[in-house]
Amino acid sequence: MTTLTTPSARVREYGAFAELTKANARELIRDPKNFFFVLVFPLIFMALFLFMGTLNPADGPGGFDPIRSGIPAVLLMAFMSLAFFGTATPLISLRQKGTLRMLGTTPLNRTVFILAQAPVRFAIALGQLAALSAAALATGFLEPSAIGRLLISCALGLAMLFALGYMVAARMRNPELANGVLALIMPVLLMFSGVFLPLEILPEGVRAVAERLPTSYFADALRQDLVGVPGGSITTAWLVMAGVAAVAATVAVTLFSWTDGEKR
């Protein structure tokens, strides 16, 4: 039997979406751990790369430039922190506290609840992108003609990372365990994406796997668009990120539970 969505039901969903969006903004800003990992931690790394750049400038046109390498690395790290520590962990904490169980007793739709997490986080990501793009423009790495392509790459990359964050949070019930797992996974993904170390130094088998990680495609797109480093096919990177985002989002909505023991 087909369920019809009435205008009054849509109004209620829009109202719930707006209220949840406000609540998410307050929760993200007030939590000290989230605030640090999402907003402060990336700035510390950017300052570190800027400091390294003043101590060790690029050695000629083909030399290593800490600032050029650091800008896409910090942006990718900022986006991953926002998707994992700023999205997955708070959702798991809400489940542990029983807040999700309470919401599950209301007519609130899972999809509406998950989508309401996005606006404030995309706003923060836009601010991070603006700050690092300004740095790339000031140093001459970012060409104005590449800004449109950069926005597409970042939109797809964020959608992918948020979908993966939601998928992690779909069933996990222990935020401390989730933080520990994510704290191990994120540096590995960053290292194998090639933003901190060139993939050429890895053994051939490891390199082949690293090059096919979804985050590696995002990192490659960021290096191309943000600081003008040649890379692979940008179209392929977009397709991979869009595909992973669609699959992960579908899994997240399908598996999402309001309580620890919810049966589907």
Score class of each variant (00 low, 15 high):
I114Y: 04
G70A: 11
M167W: 13
L137W: 01
F122A: 14
M52T: 05
I67F: 05
T99F: 14
A245W: 00
G98K: 09
E19T: 15
A18M: 14
I152N: 11
L115I: 11
P107N: 06
A18P: 10
L156R: 00
A58M: 09
G104I: 04
A47F: 08
L108F: 07
P175T: 05
S145K: 04
V168P: 06
P90N: 06
V112M: 11
F122S: 07
A83D: 06
Y14V: 15
L94Q: 15
E200G: 01
G140M: 11
G53K: 08
A73E: 11
Q96N: 08
L55C: 04
F79C: 12
G157M: 06
R68E: 10
K97R: 15
G261N: 15
F141M: 08
V229R: 07
L184G: 13
Q128C: 08
A83W: 02
I44F: 09
G15N: 13
A18F: 13
M167R: 08
S81P: 02
F162E: 06
F113I: 03
R30N: 06
L222S: 07
D220A: 13
I234V: 13
E13S: 13
F162T: 00
F36L: 10
G157H: 02
D65V: 08
S233Y: 05
A131E: 04
V168N: 07
G15I: 12
M241V: 09
Q117V: 02
G194H: 00
L156D: 04
T89Q: 05
A210Q: 00
I147L: 14
G231C: 00
R264F: 06
M191S: 11
N24D: 10
M241P: 00
G165L: 08
R149Y: 05
I152C: 13
Q117S: 09
E176L: 13
F85A: 09
R26V: 14
N179K: 09
R223E: 04
V40W: 03
A219M: 03
T111V: 15
M172R: 13
A88P: 03
T5P: 01
K97D: 15
A169I: 02
G231A: 01
G63I: 07
S8P: 03
T3P: 08
V251N: 10
D220F: 00
E211I: 00
P230T: 02
V209H: 01
M186F: 10
L226H: 03
E19K: 15
F196M: 14
A73D: 13
P203Q: 01
V227T: 12
V209T: 04
A242Q: 02
A125V: 09
A248C: 03
T87V: 09
P7V: 12
V188W: 08
N24S: 11
T5D: 04
L184R: 07
F218I: 01
L150P: 03
L129M: 15
I29V: 11
M160W: 04
V229T: 14
F85Y: 08
V181I: 14
